[in-house]
Structures are given as structure tokens and as C-alpha cells.
Amino acid sequence: MTMIEIKDLTKQYAKKVTAVDHVTAVFKDKTFYGIMGRSGSGKSTLLQLLGTLAAPTEGTIVAGGEDITRLKPNALADFRQKQIGFVFQDFQLHPYLTALQNVMLPMQLNAGISRREQKEKAMELLRKVSLEHRADHYPKQLSGGEQQRAAIARALANDPRYILADEPTGNLDVQNEQRIFSLLKELSGNKTVIAVTHNPVISQYAGVVLHMQDGRLQGEGMV
């Protein structure tokens, strides 16, 4: 029941541009989905809808048995905090917090965990992305690949069910690209990972590759 089912999902901008056009799909548990498509095909918009960053014009998103499009702002925030980890193309790390502090950011919201535990857990996550030696460095002091790994560690902070990545390798070189994709693949061992990209390399890592064109999603497993 932890899968995501979307039905007739539509997003229109200013009632003119239909960025996502009646998409119906099921994203299964513990799978690495790669969504490919040309620029402007609606990939980011779809990801934003899945991540509750934007509200759909039409349609439903059922995650864990609950229609999340009906949630109120606070419930949405809580949903994002507990269930979703985002990875962005431009990393989106807080420039004046260290890698460790950045990873701790989402944990702040978790009242049940002490500051010490937060620190230990964040350190563990940094170890997972091989960044423990950079824990006290600020984003400026890290390379692009390192920043993205820190961002992935942060996405994992509250052990979410879904990892949503928008062009996670868009700003990285080939070596780092591979590293990030294999990291995401590794994560799909116990999470649903949906990565949006126009990088064909993803087909080597993703379990399911879908294609997006003019707001429509096509591919294997599509309804």
C-alpha cells in the first residue's frame, strides 16, 4: 500500500499551458523510476505534483492509501517532512550551514529525536554518501558532486518512502553523474526513487524508464 497511484493528473499554468496532461500511472515500491523527456515536456511539473510542491489542476495522487491532493498546508508540510526526500539540480543546500547541519535540517522537525541523535544520524548518512570527512565544510567548500551527495544525505534525513530527484546530475560531470545514479539505485533497495532527467545514462540504472512528451507519460507499466 505504499505505492503512489496517480489518476488523471493534470497541471495547467495560467489556464493555457498544460504542463501535465491527464497522466495516470502507478509508481511501485522499492523501484527506481527514471523519467526522461525533452526540456519543457512537463517532467519537473510532474515531480512537483508528486512532491506536493504544487497543487494539480485536476486528478488525484494517492500515496499510502491517502489522497494527498486533499491535504491542508500543514498536513502537506508534515507529509513532505516524513515521506519525501527531494534532490534538486542545483542542490539547494543552505549556504551558511555545514554539510552536517544541512543534513540535520529536516530532523529539526522531528521532536522525538534528541540533538545528539540527530548529529549521529546525520553523520551516519554522510558516511553513507562518503562525505563524513566533509561534515564540517560549507557548501562553497564542496565540489558539485559532493554537494549533491550532501543533498541526498539530507533527503534521507527522515528516512522517507519516496525520493524525488529533478535533474540530479544536471550540473555534474560524467564521473559524478555515475556516482549519483548508482547511489540513487542503491537507495531504491528500500525506497521509491523517481528521478527526472534528460540524461539517457539513467537507463543503465533505473529499473523502469518512462518517457514524457507534451505532458503525457509513456512507457512500460503505464496504464
Binding site: 500543514n74 508540510a77 517532512q81 516524513k82 519525501i84 527531494f86 539547494q92
Partner: peptide, 12 residues
């Protein structure tokens, strides 16, 4: 917006 994506409520 970043804080919001991380799950911070507006009140926080």
C-alpha cells in the same frame, strides 16, 4: 521555499 520542501510548516 527550500524550508517548505523540507517539511517546515509556515508557522515554524
Amino acid at each position: 521555499a527550500l524550508f517548505q520542501t523540507l517539511g517546515y510548516r509556515n508557522a515554524k
